[in-house]
Design a protein around this nucleic acid. Structure first.
Lengths: 232, 232
DNA sequence: CAAAGATAATGACATATATCAATACAACTA
DNA sequence: TAGTTGTATTGATATATGTCATTATCTTTG
């Protein structure tokens, strides 16, 4: 046990484990436990970086994490905001063993790292686990298609509307919500410059669709925002 | 055997089966064979439509197929051009049993349809098959990330360059290549209007980067096109 | 508390891209 | 062959969006 490791409890009794592990028996959970490392990240810390070897399955138990592709000209595209209890597993695991996006804590966070070999072994030996995993991968893929359409076929107001609704529904789950995402992050989620993102937010504010004060957001007119999302 | 069905041969001896089936034994291939249907599509025919139930694994043995998301305002986004011998399997199979994109033959095509239950059963019973499938899904996912960056962070010349290189390297595999894709299709692959796509093609032509005559394309300066792809 | 540094907001301007309208061209069809 | 239809091309114009410069606001730190 080193400074980075914190064996709070075993996987079998853990209340914070990802739902994908529900189908695992005691012995299987023990296997995971053996190679498991619990790590604490401070807000702003890089968890893993695009282009580096991908050796672990990561399960987030506390905090929030942004995953993003590092593109050209120092521009990032945020793919998702991960919250507890969800996991992060890139496609590299079954391809080139590399990370194809980066992950950064946007709040103080705690994550369990599980050795990739253990994970892969369970996929091979437990069909329920494999199927659950495929289900997760598929849902992620479906979400990506929605993201494609939002980013490529909607104009800026529609894209910002999508981001606000995503934060409300999928990330924070409350209507007045506080976020630690910067304006630049909001821009990186909607594929535009931060100036443009700010401008659209101001327009929504002027039209009383949202209320914004610093990083506190409240969606005042959800129907209108939904409409803007639909009409692009 | 009806008019749509053409039992040319069994899966076990088939030379045109997707590489993912390589790990299956005779008995497993026979299972697939039992529910297998071979269908011929004419160019322009819809193979399946977004929003309809997804009941089959589809393996393309002849021809070419475009898969595309139907977005807003009758705008489509082409995700990929599928050639033999590759398969098409949407994420709906492990989620909501629905198609999340449409598929249309762009050449006269032949496909084998395999019942989804049979497919899922093999995923559960043969770990090699499951792992191979996960590998394929992962590669697809990695490609999608590249597409994200191309579509959201590159300007029109960069996006058209990506499309031309994709057609040359991944679809036709030859340098002077003939395509059955319309200008509208090229636009739908690069997320722009067809007028814009045509204009960029003309610019490339004027700069002697490519030669275009109707639907015959030749990339004269691959390096330059790669550079345009990189610099956005 | 003041200074410094980061982030946010705003305005003026440049430019990338879409839209619209007109024409050209090719491929069918009567 | 003429006519008809769909696709491709081009030009003029409108608009969405990015860039740059400036100021404002907040946060950290000495």
């Amino acid at each position: 046990m080193n400074q980075y490791t914190h064996y709070s409890k075993g996987c079998a009794t853990c209340q914070d484990k990802a739902d994908i592990f529900a189908c695992l028996c005691q012995a299987e959970l023990d296997q995971i436990d053996e190679t498991r490392i619990e790590v604490h990240f401070k807000a702003g810390e890089l968890i893993f970086k695009q282009g580096t070897p991908n050796m672990h399955f990561l399960c987030l138990t506390q905090g929030k994490v942004k995953t993003y592709i590092e593109g050209y000209n120092n521009k990032n595209l945020i793919l998702s905001i991960v919250k507890p209890i969800e996991y992060i597993l890139g496609p590299g695991i079954y391809a080139d063993q590399m990370h194809h996006f980066s992950a950064m804590a946007i709040e103080d966070s705690v994550a369990c790292l599980v050795d990739m070999q253990t994970f892969k072994k369970l996929i091979r030996t437990n069909p329920d686990f494999a199927e659950d995993f495929l289900r997760k991968v598929s849902l992620q893929s479906i979400y990506n298609y929605e993201l494609f359409i939002s980013l490529t076929q909607k104009q800026m107001p529609g894209r910002i509307a999508d981001v606000l609704l995503y934060l409300k529904d999928k990330v924070y789950g409350t209507n007045p919500f506080h976020t630690t995402l910067s304006r630049q992050d909001l821009a990186d989620m909607s594929g535009m410059s931060k100036e443009s993102a700010i401008r659209i937010l101001r327009e929504f504010k002027d039209e009383n669709i949202i209320h914004v004060s610093g990083n506190d957001f409240e969606i005042l007119n959800v129907d209108h925002l939904n409409k803007i999302s639909k009409t692009g």
